[in-house]
Deep mutational scan, measured.
Amino acid sequence: KSAVKALFDYKAQREDELTFTKSAIIQNVEKQDGGWWRGDYGGKKQLWFPSNYVEEMI
């Protein structure tokens, strides 16, 4: 599983989504079709976030 870095702040709209700030590192990313991926951040595990808010880390 990979890690991504947030390009923008994102505030969860639902309880199954992540809230994060710009430059946050989201771990254990599971990529899905449809523009939403799952990952771990801030003590939350495998919640959804919009993939267009992040960049992949190499």
Rank of each mutant, 00 (worst) to 15 (best):
K1A: 13
K1N: 12
K1M: 13
K1T: 14
S2T: 15
S2M: 15
A3D: 12
A3S: 15
V4W: 12
V4G: 05
V4S: 05
V4A: 11
K5E: 06
K5A: 06
A6Q: 01
A6Y: 01
A6K: 01
L7N: 06
L7M: 11
F8H: 11
F8S: 08
D9R: 06
D9Y: 06
Y10I: 01
Y10W: 08
K11E: 13
A12C: 07
A12G: 11
A12D: 01
A12E: 04
A12M: 05
A12W: 04
A12S: 08
A12K: 05
A12R: 04
Q13I: 10
Q13R: 11
Q13S: 10
Q13N: 10
Q13K: 12
Q13D: 08
R14V: 07
R14T: 11
R14N: 14
R14C: 15
R14D: 08
R14S: 13
E15C: 14
E15F: 10
E15T: 10
D16N: 12
E17F: 05
E17C: 08
E17R: 01
E17H: 09
L18I: 04
L18P: 01
L18H: 06
L18Q: 01
T19K: 01
T19F: 04
T19N: 08
T19M: 03
F20N: 02
F20R: 00
F20T: 00
F20Q: 00
T21L: 13
T21Q: 12
K22V: 11
K22T: 10
K22L: 07
S23V: 06
S23K: 08
A24P: 02
A24V: 08
A24H: 04
I25Q: 04
I25W: 08
I25G: 02
I26F: 04
I26W: 00
I26L: 06
Q27L: 15
Q27V: 15
Q27W: 14
Q27F: 15
Q27K: 13
Q27I: 15
Q27R: 15
N28G: 06
E30H: 14
E30K: 13
E30R: 13
E30L: 14
K31I: 09
Q32L: 15
Q32A: 14
D33E: 14
D33A: 14
D33K: 10
D33N: 11
G34V: 06
G34M: 06
G34K: 07
G34L: 06
G34F: 06
G34C: 11
G35R: 08
G35H: 09
W36N: 03
W36D: 01
W36E: 02
W36M: 09
W36K: 05
W36V: 02
W37H: 00
R38E: 00
R38Y: 03
R38M: 09
R38A: 04
R38S: 04
G39T: 00
G39F: 02
G39S: 01
G39P: 00
D40A: 00
D40L: 00
D40I: 00
Y41C: 06
Y41I: 06
Y41M: 05
Y41Q: 03
Y41H: 09
Y41R: 03
G42H: 07
G42K: 08
G42F: 06
G42W: 06
G43R: 07
G43F: 06
G43T: 09
G43V: 07
K44A: 13
K44Q: 14
K44H: 11
K44S: 12
K45A: 09
K45I: 15
K45C: 13
K45Q: 12
Q46F: 07
Q46Y: 09
L47Y: 13
F49N: 00
F49H: 03
F49D: 01
F49P: 03
P50T: 03
S51P: 05
S51V: 09
S51K: 11
N52D: 13
N52F: 10
Y53E: 01
V54R: 00
V54C: 05
V54P: 00
E55H: 08
E55Y: 09
E55C: 13
E55G: 07
E55Q: 10
E56V: 12
E56K: 06
E56H: 07
E56L: 09
E56Y: 07
M57Q: 09
I58H: 13
I58T: 14
I58K: 12
I58C: 14
